[in-house]
């Protein structure tokens, strides 16, 4: 709850390079949120309306299938970047968890830069693919939507994710502490354990 306000304070107080990064980052984050949340809502609305149409009027909504499939593609690939921003990509942290201090920070920088490299490569490859689809003029079967428009989500998602990982590496180079993403500091949540212990202790008091 107060972590967001703390974040804002910090952004205000820092000028220059990091401040500019954070501003850019916030703008991109807003874009991702609108796209991802919007796609989920649109999917729920479309599919429900299709079912209702089928039940009441024996007539579903033409193109429900292909639009749903397109929405999933957009969510997935724009989500790559959004998940990177919130350090939510699944990873196997057993070894990483054992490291501390500089070693941990160094490994995180290597991981971030390596992942960024892959993201940029996929951005390049998917950009080529989108151009090829554009040239071949492939469209969907029911609504004849050009696929290249929808699949532009891939290069965009990958490049934004790549930028996220570079920013994470930069943040770790500039700022003290270990940062799992540009704006999220690393840490486990001990609060529930502490609360429970405290409550148990309180219960046993006379």
């Amino acid at each position: 709850m107060n972590s967001t306000s703390a974040k804002r304070d910090e952004q205000r107080s820092r000028g220059g390079f990091l401040g500019a990064l954070l501003a850019l980052d916030r703008l991109l984050g807003l874009l991702e949120r609108v796209v991802i949340g919007g796609c989920i809502l649109a999917m729920a609305l479309l599919m429900s309306a299709h079912v209702v149409g089928n039940l009441l009027f024996s007539q579903g909504i033409a193109g429900t299938y292909e639009i749903t499939e397109m929405l999933i593609v957009v969510i997935t690939f724009v989500g790559v970047s959004y998940a990177a921003r919130h350090a939510r990509h699944i990873s196997m942290s057993a070894i990483y968890d054992q490291l501390e201090g500089r070693a941990r920070k160094a490994l995180l920088i290597v991981i971030s830069l390596g992942t960024a490299l892959l993201m940029f490569y996929f951005c390049f490859k998917s950009f080529e693919y989108v151009v090829a689809l554009h040239d071949r003029g492939r469209t969907s079967a029911a609504l004849h939507i050009p696929f290249w428009m929808v699949y532009t989500a891939l290069p965009i998602g990958f490049v934004l994710a790549g930028i996220q990982y570079v920013l994470t590496a930069l943040r770790n180079m500039i700022s003290p502490g270990v940062w799992r993403s540009l704006t999220e500091r690393e840490g486990y949540d001990e609060s529930v354990l502490d609360d429970a212990a405290a409550e148990r202790a309180a219960d046993t008091q006379p």
Binding site: I40, I72, R88
Partner: peptide, 11 residues
Amino acid sequence: TGLITAVVFIL
């Protein structure tokens, strides 16, 4: 929901 979906679906 979109975030969980994306994390699983990229895999």
